[in-house]
Design a protein around this nucleic acid. Sequence first.
DNA 1: TATTCAATTATTGTATACCAAATTTCGCCT
DNA 2: AGGCGAAATTTGGTATACAATAATTGAATA
Lengths: 219, 219
Amino acid sequence: MKNQSERAYQRMREKILSGIIVPGARLVEQALSEEIGVNRGDVRQALSRLCAEGLAAKGEKGGFFVRQLTDKDVEEIYEVRYILETSAVRLIIQRAHEEEYRQLDEIVDHMELMAGNNYMLGVYEADLRFHTALVKAAHNEKLFDIYISANIPLSGVHGWRHEITRIDKDYMRDVSEHRRIVEHLRRKDADAAIHLLNTCHEDSRDSIDPPDPAPLSNR
Amino acid sequence: MKNQSERAYQRMREKILSGIIVPGARLVEQALSEEIGVNRGDVRQALSRLCAEGLAAKGEKGGFFVRQLTDKDVEEIYEVRYILETSAVRLIIQRAHEEEYRQLDEIVDHMELMAGNNYMLGVYEADLRFHTALVKAAHNEKLFDIYISANIPLSGVHGWRHEITRIDKDYMRDVSEHRRIVEHLRRKDADAAIHLLNTCHEDSRDSIDPPDPAPLSNR
DNA sequence: TATTCAATTATTGTATACCAAATTTCGCCT
DNA sequence: AGGCGAAATTTGGTATACAATAATTGAATA
C-alpha cells in the first residue's frame, strides 16, 4: 500500500467483493473514511475508480452504492467470461511455456488438497486463482487487465458470504476437471480444453443461489 | 454533465484521446483544475478514473501521466480488439435485428459520402462509430462496456492529431469492405464477416505511423 | 393504529487553505 | 558544456466550511 487513496481502494474493494458491504448498500463517505483512516477526498478517489471498474455505481440522487447485479448482468458476465477464457486458451496453446503449465498444475494440487479436506472456501479460492492464471498464461497483458478489472471471476459469487455454500457438491470432480484442462492445454487440444472450461462454468452457475435481497437504504 | 468531477473526466478524456495532451505528458493537477474550472479534488477523482481505464498512469515518482503505449501494448490491443469484435460478430448473428443492420448500413452510407469527398477525419470517425455499433449489436452490455472502457477503437490512433494522415489511402475500398461485412452479417456468415474485419485491422495497422516521440517532462 | 407532514439530522458536492516531502527547474559556477 | 545547489513547483495528504438536498424522526392528525 503505497498511498492512502490506494489503501482506501483496496479496503473498499475487499469489503465489496467479500460481501461485508452488501450489494445495493450505500457507501457513506465519512463512515468509510473514518473506518479506513483516510480523509474523504481519498475515499472519493477510490469510489471513482471502483465506479469505473463496475464494482460501485452512482445513485441517481447522488451518492455511491455497491453495484447491484441483475440476473441479466450475471448472464452477460458469464458470456464475457466464456469469450475471454476461450480466447485465452487459444493463445496459451500458441505461446505458453512449460513453466506456466506447472504453475497451473500446482494450483490444481492445492485445490485437490483442500477439496480432500472439505475446505470449500479454499477450493473456491484456488478456482479463482486457476482461472486468473489461465488468462495470464495467454501472454497478453491487456487481455489480462480486462479480465481482472471486469471482476469477471468474482461476479458470479458477488456476496457469496451470505449464501449457504452447497455442501453436497462434488469438489473432487472439479479438481479432476481442472487437471484435465491442463492436460489438454499441454497436448495443444484447444477444443477439448474449452469444452471442459465450459463445463466448469455451467457447474458454478448452477451452484449459485441468488443472493439475499439487499436491504436498500434508498434507490 | 451532472457534476464537476464528471466534467473534469470528460474534458481530460477528450484532451488525451484527441492528442491535445500528448502521450507521456505530465498531468498537472492545478493547471488542469484551473483550466477546466473545477477544484483539485475533482481533478484527482477524474485522474483516478482515467487511470483505471488505462488512459493515464501513475508515475513511479508520483504524479499522473498520459499513458504511453508501447509497440507491445498496441500489438496486444489489436489482439484484444480482434477477440472482442470476433465474438461480437458471432453473437450478432444469433441476436441482431434488422433494425441494427440498418443502423450499420447508415453508418457505411455516411462513410461513403465522406470518403467520396475526401473527408479523411470524417471517414475515420465513421469507422469508429461502425465498430462501436458492431459491438453494441451483440446485445451484451458488459461486452460493450469492456470494449468502450478499454478504449480499443482509439488506441491505435492515440495521438493521431500529430501524424500525417495518409492521403493516398483508398478509402473507397474501406467503404465497400464495411458494406460487405454487413452483408455477411445479414446472411449469417460469421466466418466471412470475421475475415473481412480482420482485413480492416490489418489495413489500419499498416496505415498508422508511430507517433512523434513525446516530449517527456520526466519519467 | 396508520398516515401525513413538518422539523431535524445526515450526507453530498463543492470549495478552500494548509503543510511537509519530494521533484523539477533554473541560474550560477567551473 | 556540464555539474551543483537554491528556489519554485507539485504532489499527497489533511482539515474545515457550507449550501443544497436527502433521509429520518417525531409529533399531530384522521
